[in-house]
Design a protein around this nucleic acid. Structure first.
Length: 491
RNA sequence: GGGCGCGUAGCUCAGUGGUAGAGCAUCUGCCUUUUAAGCAGAGGGUCGGUGGUUCGAGACCACCCGCGCUCACCA
């Protein structure tokens, strides 16, 4: 044990001798730092009870100043030996990191800082470990400078509780995250969507192209999969007569971890009966427009030096038309070999097992996708890539599907849902064939899902939005780890 | 999984083969409106781990662990 920790255990004993309980049961808080500072005229000379963690101490013999941090920020407290007696001796044994309650009146110091002049002080929880304290200073231009900030990313993610204590910006991002999700929920609720919960443990996984986590149920004696998507269960509910459903929940994909991928991530999926993908495009742009106004009061964001505007309506681009325009290739007419040749010329390595749809997808990703900066719906995807989407009503070989892109990154995926059970069976069979050929991300045949839509599923529009990535964009974070409280780490 | 980089005090970092350093934090003393409080003094290290090279390794070499960036796969 290092000396800093040993010291704190000793102080704990000393505090007990002074009849100071190190771990209290409660404290009647009636004011918070930010509210006091923002409403000084209401609070001046009024009594308040505040509580929080000591973040800085300036002792001057028989009087001391300290900053304590509560849920909203920091406020200074002032303690005088004359006035708090025994508690002042206890305060001498306290450290940065300890949690205290202060009862006192609000005043302004000589230098103008709004503070609480203590009448009494209670220890609520003794901190036994030193926190990586960062000192703050406001320079002449009013900019906040932080010294020795706790910056080691590994420690910040593994010990998020410490990160949250010492890096206030981190807390702000997560509060924004919650506000975004709340705003999405409100918007959906106002539009008559019903929030539901569907199984995380599934006997068959589906609804996306991805490798699953595999687990095992002992008493059922069978393999179960952690869901990779909610889609097939939510559409069963559309069959069951819910007109509009949504679910916000974790999906799990057994893939690599990087800046934009965490193995468990939060997905919003929603389905609306009697609507198609054209309706859904308007719905999405209005939803994001509304949410950004509600949470941030604006639709314009500066992300990585680009001004992004989420104001509806967003651009629309046809994937096949763009490829024809920019590369002069009609991907629908072109053979698989033509596409392979085209990609090879551009220097892309292929395994040779890619389907034609996949080749079109690669071509699009490599040539056009990264040029899309402003929020844009890319429409009309090849049928091979979209086994759950309805065929385009007038164009051969493509489906009624769109993905939303911002800054070259996908933020949502949607389609007119395939409700023809005969077509759906054929699509599943095509996927099964790909699977046999070694594509371990190809869709499994879900007989019960087929059975469900054989009862009849109304025409339906469906949408999935990766919440983590949406939060990244709106809060300006460049790593998914900075919008997930406890990101996956090697153990 | 591949490539590049990093790991030294609680935190942030110096230290290019010869006694392990700084600032903040901690401790002692002084200080009753300070604010990166101040002044004077003190303590604190398995230099990520294991081997190796060397008279001598924090530094050089090998392997391992962890993290970051990046490429591949995916949302």
């Amino acid at each position: 044990m290092n000396d800093l920790i040993k010291r704190r255990y000793e102080e704990l004993g000393e505090l007990n001798k002074l009849n100071f309980e190190a771990y209290a049961y409660d404290y009647e808080v009636n004011a918070y730092s930010a509210h006091i500072k923002n409403n000084f005229d209401l609070y001046e000379n009024k009594d308040v009870k505040i509580a929080g963690r000591i973040m800085a101490i300036r002792r001057m013999g028989k009087a001391s100043f300290a900053h304590i941090q509560d849920k909203d920020g920091r406020i200074q407290i002032y303690l005088k030996k004359d006035e708090i007696g025994n508690s002042y001796d206890a305060f001498k044994l306290m450290d940065i990191g300890d949690i205290i309650g202060v009862d006192g009146f609000v005043f302004k110091t000589k230098t103008g800082e709004i503070s609480v002049h203590a009448r009494s002080m209670n220890l609520l929880a003794k901190s036994l470990r030193p926190i990586p304290i960062a000192k703050e200073m406001i320079d002449e231009e009013g900019n906040k400078k932080i010294y020795d900030q706790f910056a080691d990313k590994e420690l910040r993610y593994r010990q998020r509780y410490v990160d949250l204590i010492v890096n206030p910006d981190v807390r702000d991002v997560f509060i924004k995250r919650t506000s975004i999700i709340t705003a999405l929920r409100n918007y959906l609720d106002e539009n008559y969507f019903v929030e539901v919960e569907t199984p995380v443990l599934q006997p068959l996984y589906g609804g996306a192209a991805a490798r699953p986590f595999v687990t095992y149920h002992n008493s059922l004696d069978r393999t179960l999969y952690l869901r990779i998507a909610d889609e097939l269960y939510l559409k069963r509910l559309i069959v069951g007569g819910f007109d509009r459903v949504y679910e916000i929940s974790k999906d799990f994909r057994n893939e690599g971890i990087d800046k934009t991928h965490n193995p468990e991530f939060t997905m919003l999926e929603l389905y609306a009966a009697y609507k198609d993908y054209n309706w859904m495009m308007e719905f999405v742009e209005n939803m994001i427009n509304t949410v950004s106004l509600k949470v941030f009061g604006k639709t314009e964001f500066i992300v990585e030096g680009n001004i992004i505007n989420f104001k509806a309506p967003w651009n629309r681009l046809s994937m096949v038309d763009e490829l024809k325009k920019h590369l002069g290739i009609d991907v629908l007419q072109a053979s698989k070999e033509d596409l392979q040749k085209e990609l090879k010329q551009r220097g892309f390595e292929m395994s040779g097992t890619e389907s034609k749809g996949k080749l079109i997808d690669i071509l699009f990703e490599e040539t056009i996708q990264h040029t899309i900066i402003q929020p844009t719906f890319v429409i009309d995807y090849p049928v091979e890539l979209s086994p759950l989407a309805k065929k385009h009503r007038s164009r051969e070989g493509i489906v009624e599907r769109f993905e939303g892109f911002v800054l070259g990154r996908e933020i949502c995926n949607a389609f007119s849902e395939l409700n023809d059970p005969i077509d759906q069976r054929q699509r599943f069979e095509a996927q099964a064939k790909l699977r046999e050929e070694g594509d371990d991300e190809a869709h499994q045949i879900d007989e019960d899902f087929l059975r469900a839509i054989e009862y009849g599923m109304p025409p339906t529009a469906g949408l999935g939005i990766g919440i983590d990535r949406l939060v990244m964009l709106l809060t300006g974070q460049t790593s998914i780890r900075d919008v997930v409280l406890f990101p996956q780490m090697r153990t």
